[in-house]
Structures are given as C-alpha cells and as structure tokens.
Amino acid sequence: MLSPVFLAHGSPFTIFEESDFTKFLKQFGQENRPKAIVIFSAHFESEMTTIAATDDVHEMVYDYYGFPDSFYQVQYPARGSTIVASIVEERLRLNNIPVQQKYRGLDHGVFPIMMHAYPEADIPIVPVSVNPFLPARQQFAIGEALQGLEKEGILVIGSGFVSHNLRAFDRDKDAPPREWAMQFKNWIRDKVVTRDIESLSQYDVLAPHAAMAVPRAEHFVPLLIALGSGNSGSDIRVLFDSIEHGSGSSLSFQF
C-alpha cells in the first residue's frame, strides 16, 4: 500500500550528495513504486491551492541562489499527468476547498527527492501548492480530501522540513544538533506518532521553541497535509530521523 508520506527534501546540496539520507531516499523509491505522485512542495506557494497540470515533461525551477553552475543544469525529465491533476481537483472541490489549475515546474522541494528515489524519471508527478498562512486545521482538511488515493496507485507526498530556520543553519553539515532543535523535533515526532491532531493544530504555541524552529510555516505545513491524507486507522512509521547543519531536521514519516 502506497501510504502518504512526509519527506524532508534536503538542501540543494542533496542533489549531488551521497549520504545516509540519500541512501534512505533510494531505498524508499525501491520499496514504493506508485503509478503517479502528488507532491505538496514547500517551495510552491499560492493563496489558493494550485495544481500544476500538464502531460508534458516538466520544466525545471531552480529556486535557489549562489550555487555553482552545475546546480542550474540539473535535469529531471519527469512528465506530469492531467488525469491525476483532475482527480485531485475534483476531490478538493467536493470538500469545498478552493482550487485552481495553473502550471508550474519542478522546484527544489521536488526534484532532489525524485532524483534519488526515482532516478529513471518514469513516474508522472503532479505538484500542488501550499498556503503557509492557513490555520493548521485547514491544512489537515486539504490532506483529508485526498484520503484513499493510494488505492488508485497514487502516492501523496508532503515535502518540507519539520524545523527550518536558515539563519540558524550551521555551515558544517555535521555540526552537533542544537538543543532547541532537538526539543522541537522530538515534540513533533511524539505528537505525530500518537496522532495527536489537537496538539499539532496548536504546535506554534505548544511545541518548545516553535518560533525558532518554524519562523515561517511553508516548510512545516506539508507535514500537516500529508498527515491528513493518511488513513486514520493505520500505524504511523518514522522513516528517517536526523538533524543536519545543527538545526535542520530530516524527520520523515509514512502515514
């Protein structure tokens, strides 16, 4: 069963890295082979939920700055799927969630994951936007509208970071984890695994060091969407858990 997942997408360096995290992504891709992927990327923001629909090979969106030229020459020639996009749109409309179709290519919340998990680029990908300003309950509702897509061979992915504060990132990837980042990550892990929706809906006031770990919610809300899209009766698995650059959590789940 292709249960929905939340995956950390890593920094742009993930594109070329060979690490424990990229090994995990490779293994994930080998164990999970969907017919299509619907992915909510932290780097695709819009006020209204927006589905990027196409049947062509996706364009590349290099939404990072100051990297070597090779980072702007990366290609991941996956196609989209207007059929899957229409399925997603219909599900959202039936649940009274405002939605539109407007094309956008694959950003770095998408292709670094896909390059390691599905290097053949042979699975259609449908990117969907996030609105970081919606309340947590509305984020869950977006996910809930997509429950059961795994029965049709469609994998729902939320792509972001549990903690993401660029000002607190250490240049050293192997820098010791900061205590505040560990406390926040562990609180989130506990509430997700126990499916404590009430607490997660108030993570910004209940979780320790939430303001430091999530100064802006765009990288966090894909977790809430993916959690909402899972089967409420299934066990939640922790897929990967580490902290890099001192404060960036790669905590990933399957719902």
Rank of each mutant, 00 (worst) to 15 (best):
L2Y: 13
S3G: 13
P4A: 12
V5N: 02
L7D: 13
L7V: 11
H9W: 13
G10E: 07
S11H: 14
S11R: 07
I15R: 10
E17Q: 15
D20N: 15
F21N: 01
K23P: 01
L25D: 06
F28S: 11
G29E: 08
E31G: 11
E31H: 11
N32G: 05
R33C: 08
A36R: 06
I37A: 02
I39T: 13
F40W: 10
F40K: 10
F40P: 10
A42T: 08
S46I: 02
T50C: 12
T50N: 08
D55Y: 12
M60A: 02
M60L: 07
M60Y: 10
V61H: 02
G66P: 04
F67W: 14
Q73W: 02
Q73H: 13
Q75H: 13
Y76N: 10
A78R: 05
A78E: 06
R79T: 15
S81R: 00
I83S: 14
S86E: 11
I87G: 02
R93N: 06
N95H: 10
N95W: 04
N96I: 06
P98E: 08
L106K: 07
D107Q: 06
G109T: 02
F111G: 07
P112V: 00
I113E: 09
I113W: 01
I113Q: 13
I113H: 06
A117G: 13
A117I: 09
Y118E: 05
E120K: 14
I123T: 12
P124T: 03
I125P: 08
V126C: 11
P127A: 06
P127K: 03
V128M: 14
V128D: 11
S129C: 09
V130C: 04
V130L: 10
V130S: 08
F133S: 15
L134P: 00
A136V: 08
Q138V: 00
Q139P: 10
F140C: 03
F140Y: 14
F140I: 10
I142V: 14
E144N: 03
Q147L: 03
L149P: 09
E152Y: 02
G153Q: 06
L155C: 11
G160H: 03
F161M: 12
V162N: 04
V162G: 08
V162S: 07
S163N: 09
H164P: 14
R171K: 01
D174A: 13
A175T: 00
P177R: 04
E179N: 14
E179C: 01
W180I: 03
A181C: 03
I188H: 06
I188W: 03
I188Y: 02
R189I: 07
V192H: 00
V192A: 03
V193K: 09
V193N: 09
R195F: 03
E198S: 01
Q202K: 15
Y203N: 00
D204G: 05
L206G: 00
P208A: 00
P208S: 04
A213W: 05
A213M: 05
A213N: 00
R216I: 04
F220N: 13
L223A: 11
L224H: 09
L224G: 11
S232D: 15
V238P: 05
L239W: 10
F240Y: 15
D241E: 15
D241G: 01
S242M: 08
I243M: 00
I243V: 03
E244A: 12
E244V: 13
S247V: 05
S249Y: 12
S249T: 05
L251T: 01
L251E: 05
F253M: 07
Q254N: 02
Q254M: 07
